[in-house]
Design a binder for these strands. Structure first.
Length: 502
RNA sequence: GCCGCGUUCGUCUAGUCGGCCUAGGACGCCAGGUUUUCAUCCUGGAAAUCAGGGGUUCGAAUCCCCUACGCGGUACCA
């Protein structure tokens, strides 16, 4: 058995959130570093919140990101099944054990009764909690006689944990150190629902134990229920795994957890892949479709709440695995910064092979009904690569290389296009035409020679030439463009500009 | 309300058990340079009195206490 076994256990209630991706990444890095196992478990014990397609989305996201699991749904493993809805019988057995040992009890209070109770307390500015102070006044196997309990067993009921009194529960957290809480403040959580399925708390503890999980690395939102989990391990007589509660990812502006709404509002993705909710039709964009490279997303995410202890920030997956350490995870929440994510993406695009990029861009061009041979695209990549922050920047950065400009930037025209411009451009066109064999360097020298010998304004002429070829005052080196377009197309564009702008 | 966790430049963070921190790096921002254009790139700069207040100490961002603020939790959701 591996000495380290971790798990990522999402609930299929929607697309995988970017914060979840980071949690999964940390689990993955920790497992790989320790030659352990990383498990993917689906926690689908809430039937009401189940969303069609969410599980497939999660799987596909990890596939894109390059995070692999050693065991889990779709993968199998020695502790299968890895989907909680397929493990119902297992939980029934364990909840029975808890009832028999006196750690849990049946409760018959209906949702309406509980709601009424809460309202009642609320009106007195108090908070109702199903706990040691109230449980004997409620309808459960603690307050009812054996006979009464028996008679109610064919009606819906839940099973609650009987939180022990006067205990100081200590959680040893790998990130936060010791966290202490008094058991008297805790409530009797429902472990088993009336629909025959366990709640997260029960299923989670049973599965982590059965699957021999050694380290639970999860979001800080779980810290408040960690004492319950610790007590459950005690109730079962099991050794608890080690805990590490991760700081949360916060929205870039203001406060609060990063949510889908923030992404929509601020215009950046919060999910790895595009997602459309099958029920509401609501659409959410993903990093993949927005032109991010998975390695950039991962690198950026890894550094949100963790650092290697050096000033190096560009880290490959292998480097992350080697360098990762739970000790270096920070305690405080991190605000999400899409600008830095863009910067990482820019860096990774520069590292990426031109041919690989060309294959990606070929599809984008096809989608725009532009057919270009792959070697030509690769050539274009070499020209515009360094100006790309997102893969999706490619079309707008390179379109003029493939398509003759339809319009000319009016600002530039106004500023640079003079009365004698057509005369000079016509001359330059002749110069270019006469170069055989055609060569961009020769073309450059010849044009420069024309400009200097006629004592012309270099910038003004060059900008007009650029305007003719590109349609705007942007783009890579002018003669690289001329070289890319070739003699004929370059001359055609010059003619066209002269006609349209004079 | 109650419980828990947290608090260093706008943001991500460094700051190994107090002294080398007149607080370092990165993103972003600003300026200059390179480029006949734009972007990239290079150089430089502004930017945190270390949340505030008390201690302890020769000496504190680093230790202790209090306060404030932020976040999380408080469901038959995970």
């Amino acid at each position: 058995m591996e000495k380290v076994r971790v798990r990522f256990a999402p609930s299929p209630t929607g697309p995988l959130h970017i914060g979840g991706v980071r949690t999964a990444l940390y689990n993955y890095l920790f497992a790989k570093q320790n030659h352990g196992a990383c498990i993917l478990r689906i926690e689908d014990t809430d039937r009401h919140r189940f969303v069609e397609g969410a599980e497939e989305y999660i799987t596909e996201s990890f596939k894109w990101l390059g995070i692999t699991f050693d065991e889990g749904v779709h993968l199998g493993g020695k502790f299968a099944p890895y989907k909680q809805s397929e493990r119902k019988e297992i939980y029934q057995q364990y909840i029975q054990q808890l009832i028999e040992s006196g750690w849990a009890y049946y409760a018959f209070d209906t949702a309406e009764e509980l709601e009424a109770k809460r309202k009642e307390y609320e009106s007195e500015k108090k908070n109702f909690q199903y706990d040691m102070t109230t449980r004997y006044g409620m309808t459960n196997s603690l307050s009812l006689s054996e006979e009464e309990v028996k008679s109610r067993m064919d009606m819906p009921y839940v099973v609650r944990f009987k939180m022990p009194e006067d205990r100081e529960i200590v959680i040893q957290d790998l990130i936060r150190g010791e966290v202490r809480i008094l058991s008297n403040l805790l409530d009797d959580k429902v472990l088993y629902k009336s629909d025959g399925l366990p709640t997260y708390h029960l299923a989670n503890i049973v599965d982590d134990h059965l699957m021999e999980i050694t380290h639970v690395i999860r979001g800080e939102e779980w810290l408040p229920s960690a004492p319950l989990h610790v007590m459950l391990y005690e109730a079962f007589g099991w050794q608890a795994p080690q805990f590490a509660h991760l700081p949360l990812l916060l929205k870039p502006d203001g406060n609060g957890k990063l949510s889908k709404r923030d992404g929509d509002r601020l215009g950046f993705p919060v999910f790895p892949l595009d997602w459309q909710n099958p029920e509401t039709g609501e659409f959410s964009k993903g990093y993949r479709e927005n032109g991010y490279l998975p390695e950039a997303v991962l690198n950026f995410l890894a550094l949100l709440g963790w650092n290697p202890g050096t000033t190096e920030e560009l880290l490959s997956m292998d480097e992350l695995i080697a360098l990762f350490s739970i000790k270096r995870i920070s305690k405080s929440d991190a605000k999400f910064d899409i600008e830095k994510a863009r910067w990482f993406n820019h860096q990774y695009i520069q590292k990426k092979d031109n041919h690989e990029l060309a294959l990606i861009f070929e599809k984008m061009l096809v989608a725009l009904s532009i057919q270009v041979a792959l070697p030509k695209i690769e050539q274009a990549v070499a020209l515009v690569k360094e100006r790309l922050h997102l893969l999706t920047d490619f079309p707008e950065q390179s379109l003029f290389l493939f398509v003759t400009p339809e319009e000319y930037d009016t600002q530039v025209v106004k500023k640079k296009w003079k009365e004698d411009t057509p005369i000079h451009l016509t001359e330059i066109q002749k110069i270019i035409t006469n170069i055989t064999p055609f060569d961009k360097t020769v073309a450059h020298d010849a044009v420069m020679n024309y400009i200097t010998s006629n004592e012309l304004n270099t910038g003004q002429i060059m900008n007009c030439l650029r305007l003719s070829l590109v349609g705007a005052a942007k783009g890579p080196d002018l003669f690289e463009i001329v070289g890319f377009l070739g003699k004929e197309e370059s001359c055609n564009r010059i003619s066209r500009a002269i006609t349209l702008l004079s």
